[in-house]
Computed example of a mutant assay.
Amino acid sequence: MESNEAGLPIVFVHGTRVSATMWRPVIHAIGRRHPTAAPDLPGHGKLRGEPFSLPGAVEAVAEAVDELGGRALLVGLSLGGYVAIATAGAHPDRVLGAVAMGCTALPRGLFGAVYRGVARLAAGHPQEADRLSAFAFRRVLSRAQAHAMVAGGLSCEATPGVVKAVREMDPLASLSAYPGPVWLVNGERDHFRRNERLFLRACRDGRLVIRPGCGHLTSLTDTTALTRQVLDAAAVVTARTYGSSTPEGAR
């Protein structure tokens, strides 16, 4: 768990096979403007070896929210986005808003079959898959971000459980159940954009943001732009939640 103190609380949720450390560059850029937390999900980071489940992931995020005072803005990428959506649907009273990145695809049909096949292959050869993932991060991300992606260890063996959980969840129902503001953020070249309009229609208070030229992971490359996006969402949520006043510790 990483945290600091000030402003509106923000909980960051990591993606598949990486850990909470992936968010270190953004958390460092935010500094003391907001209290932040980044929990490890089951099967990842410090919880590597535990079976992944969506209820377990939602519980980990809810616990992080509670540690920051009981209500927070959620920010998640890929698996983290799906978990953020599920947490918002399950605990709308504890989620002040959600920035869900790279997670607007329903892994069904051919897309789902490919997704499952890659996961099985990675789990069957986890050490090789971990090395390939680390190599890919170094190729497409900045040095600092690539280091953050691997700093907490990689867990490719967890991917089949993750894929199964995501396939079985109903993100559209979770979005429909959540009344708060949602930002659906996709890279222009992200293959997880395929159902973004369906996700947007499911939101009760949603907006779709497309990041030009970015793919699924390369949205992380420009830390300054990503941090600004998170801070802009936090400002909207702060204004809606507290009006002209500021949360305790922000002054």
Rank of each mutant, 00 (worst) to 15 (best):
188 E>C: 12
28 H>W: 09
42 P>H: 12
169 M>K: 00
206 G>Y: 10
106 L>K: 04
125 H>K: 14
8 L>R: 00
158 A>V: 15
29 A>N: 08
14 H>C: 04
245 S>H: 10
10 I>E: 02
179 P>D: 13
193 R>E: 07
224 T>E: 15
208 L>I: 11
220 L>Y: 13
166 V>M: 11
121 L>M: 14
142 S>A: 13
5 E>M: 08
170 D>M: 00
193 R>V: 05
173 A>N: 00
206 G>D: 10
176 S>K: 12
58 V>R: 05
79 L>Q: 12
90 A>H: 12
93 D>V: 07
54 L>D: 02
130 D>V: 04
163 V>S: 01
61 V>I: 05
120 R>Q: 10
111 F>P: 00
67 E>V: 10
235 A>E: 13
208 L>A: 10
92 P>Q: 14
137 F>N: 07
22 M>D: 03
44 H>G: 04
96 L>W: 04
240 R>D: 12
62 A>W: 06
61 V>A: 02
136 A>R: 09
153 G>C: 06
169 M>L: 13
135 F>C: 07
172 L>G: 01
57 A>Y: 03
15 G>H: 05
149 M>L: 05
70 G>N: 06
77 L>P: 00
92 P>E: 13
170 D>Q: 02
98 A>Y: 03
47 L>Q: 10
151 A>N: 03
62 A>C: 05
108 R>T: 14
125 H>P: 00
164 K>C: 02
189 R>S: 12
82 Y>R: 01
149 M>E: 12
148 A>S: 13
162 V>R: 03
229 Q>M: 15
209 V>T: 14
28 H>E: 15
52 F>M: 09
180 G>N: 09
13 V>P: 00
204 R>N: 09
187 G>F: 07
82 Y>V: 03
143 R>V: 12
156 C>V: 02
123 A>M: 08
83 V>R: 01
132 L>N: 10
166 V>P: 05
129 A>M: 10
188 E>R: 08
108 R>Y: 01
247 P>D: 13
65 V>D: 00
69 G>W: 08
43 G>E: 03
66 D>R: 13
150 V>F: 01
73 L>N: 01
109 G>Y: 06
58 V>E: 07
62 A>R: 12
241 T>Q: 11
212 P>G: 13
183 W>M: 07
189 R>L: 15
171 P>D: 08
85 I>S: 00
78 S>M: 05
236 V>R: 11
204 R>E: 06
247 P>C: 10
99 V>H: 02
69 G>R: 05
31 G>T: 11
83 V>E: 01
20 A>C: 12
169 M>W: 11
149 M>H: 02
209 V>D: 12
224 T>I: 06
114 V>D: 02
131 R>I: 05
37 A>H: 00
28 H>Y: 11
39 P>E: 06
32 R>T: 15
111 F>S: 03
132 L>D: 11
6 A>I: 11
84 A>S: 15
103 C>P: 03
63 E>H: 05
35 P>T: 15
98 A>L: 09
243 G>R: 02
236 V>Y: 02
12 F>Y: 11
96 L>P: 03
22 M>F: 08
